[in-house]
Write a protein that binds this DNA or RNA. Structure first.
Lengths: 237, 237
DNA sequence: TCCCCGGCTGATTGGCGAATCAACGGGCCG
DNA sequence: CGGCCCGTTGATTCGCCAATCAGCCGGGGA
């Protein structure tokens, strides 16, 4: 059925135009009310099309989300992979590059990023289609590989767990973006984004690159001695 | 449902016992399938009680989640507040204390932590009851205040945004825990947790405490010179 | 002994929303 | 001109699940 582009080339265009309209509407609505918090009718209304048309282009509600996510995520991942696997750059540049990719994506389409963070990164693990969860985990693993390689060249402190480095970096970026998404950062202008990006990358790098022992490390060694028994921490009766 | 014999025990005891059983079951089921992915019937079955009893103790499904979250979160927050607002400790100790609280909570009850991360931290912003989202944001703000105070005493680099520091710390902790929750870290023994906690706290501190310029910073200054034009990063057609 | 009371039960209901489907219209081809 | 093809429409159907409610059971008081 796909061969039918017979109508003028405009027609073939038209079809995907509709589809794109619906996809765009889905992103906006998902960002606003969340996947579970919205009805297909909302998406249709937002897109200005009939209810049934959504089902003409997408098998069901889940496929709609899947498409939104896949589109946004695959672009993000491929850019990130390009950065992470580039042979000739230093770890530092790679880390900065990854922050670039993430923040640039947010600058270009904040709502799409919001959906990705909300529906992919934090989707209830077990339940959902595994592919989403998997894609996210694979990305972290990719970063972990990058860090592992950097260790072998001495660009990264040897005593760190690469997987944790990856978690740390992504966690910082993700919550950094969340601060913008959720309104924690009042200033959301491009310069504020830029500053945030730099602070995150720089703080992260400072923390994991090899270098002289910092006060932090020194005191860590004697933690138990100096602080004795801390009042408490955790426990939960 | 076969447990009928124990009527003789203290009646007052029994009521709250049942209630706690249901709450516990809810945590387990939410952790396994997510709030939206499970039915009240699942919770009842897990608890080994009749469907209707859940509604005897909780007004509706949402109140059930609310109770789970409030219980777990309030304990976490109060511990954290105690650490963050303690007058006589250094920023360093506070940060380590916060990591302690979070990782200890996970060690004690991983499933409860999973529910908190999934259903509180990343709940679709707009839709849900605001209180949940709010509680989370307030916690981050509390940490941001802590960092702001530390700046005024010179314990924290002055050029950092306190709110971003808080995001960075929580992001690192959260994704660190997520790595365990999701199975990214194969070793989930207590020692692995301990190591992860230390690495996260140490890397974070190294990154944000004042100190001599690190290689990271030094090389960052000349980045553009040494690397020329980076291919690209972000764009999205 | 009987009856009330309250914790407890689970079949039933009601509503919501995903997914279906029969029909429409307008372009295109023969 | 007439028939067909398909993108489009939106009322209708259907299944699911939260929430209800009429009633059960067993203890304790009269």
């Amino acid at each position: 059925m796909s061969q039918r582009q017979s109508k003028s080339e405009a027609a073939g265009n038209r079809e995907s135009e509709r589809r794109r309209t619906i996809l765009r509407a889905a992103i906006d609505v998902f960002a606003r009310k969340g996947y579970h918090g919205c009805r297909i009718a909302d998406v249709a209304r937002e897109a200005g099309v009939a209810y049934g048309l959504v089902y003409h282009y997408f098998k069901n509600k889940d496929e709609l989300l899947e498409t939104v996510v896949e589109t946004g995520w695959s672009g993000f991942v491929s850019r990130m992979r390009a950065v992470a696997e580039e042979e000739s750059t230093s770890l530092e540049e790679k880390v900065r590059g990854i922050a670039d990719v993430a923040f640039e994506a947010y600058r270009v389409d904040p709502r799409a990023v919001k959906v990705l963070i909300l529906e992919v990164a934090r989707s209830p693990a077990g339940t959902q289609v595994v592919s989403r969860q998997q894609a996210y985990l694979d990305t972290i693993r990719m970063a972990a590989d990058m860090f592992a390689r950097a260790q072998s060249t001495g660009e990264l402190r040897a005593d760190l767990d690469p997987m944790l480095c990856a978690s740390l970096l992504f966690g910082a970026i993700e919550l950094g973006l969340t601060a913008f998404v959720s309104g924690l950062m009042e200033d959301r202008g491009p310069e504020a984004l830029e500053r945030a990006k730099l602070q995150i990358a720089e703080s992260f790098l400072r923390g994991v690159l090899p270098g002289a022992a910092t006060p932090a490390e020194a005191s860590w060694k004697q933690e138990k001695v100096s602080s004795g028994t801390r009042p408490k921490a955790g426990k939960r009766s």
